[in-house]
């Protein structure tokens, strides 16, 4: 199958993605430096914020604008959960509210568990040099 590389390297789109993705990370960095939140709490804040904004239908605009710039950060993970849940409800009714979100995030979670096991099988933790 031929790939149109001009579409892949759509610089305007990548630029928008870079700015939005970078800006979301800057918010995270402000939380790290200015509050005493642990990384785990920051992950939660981002997933939850993404889920709430997704549920309210706001985050969709950011995804349309910035593509991966909005979906790769963890807010995008939360957005996916929200989107999956809403779709689940649309397709299956109430039961979809319980299955839809997990289904949408299944790829990411399963991949993390799979690679986590693989890494624990072959790799060993090492002392930080700094």
């Amino acid at each position: 199958m031929n790939i149109n590389w001009a579409n892949v390297f759509d610089w305007m789109q990548i630029f928008k993605c870079f700015i939005v993705g970078g800006a979301i990370c800057v918010i995270g960095q402000i939380l790290i430096d200015k509050t005493k939140l642990t990384p785990a709490r920051i992950l939660v804040i981002f997933v939850t914020t993404g889920a709430v904004l997704g549920g309210l239908g706001i985050y969709k605009y950011l995804v349309d604008f910035a593509g991966a710039g909005a979906t790769v950060p963890l807010t995008g993970f939360g957005y996916n959960l929200a989107k999956g849940t809403i779709e689940g409800v649309q397709q299956q009714g109430l039961i979809g509210a319980f299955t839809g979100g997990v289904k949408a995030a299944a790829g990411g979670i399963a991949a993390a568990v799979f690679f986590g096991y693989i890494a624990s099988l072959i790799a060993k933790p090492k002392m930080k040099k700094q």
Binding site: C25, P39, V72, G108, A119, S120
Partner: peptide
């Protein structure tokens, strides 16, 4: 810092590092 923590890479790291 947050540049690698907030993208999905940070989520993966937070699962793989305790596994190891």
């Amino acid at each position: 810092g947050a540049g690698s923590l907030i993208p999905i890479t940070g989520f993966a790291n937070s699962i793989v590092s305790p596994a190891m």
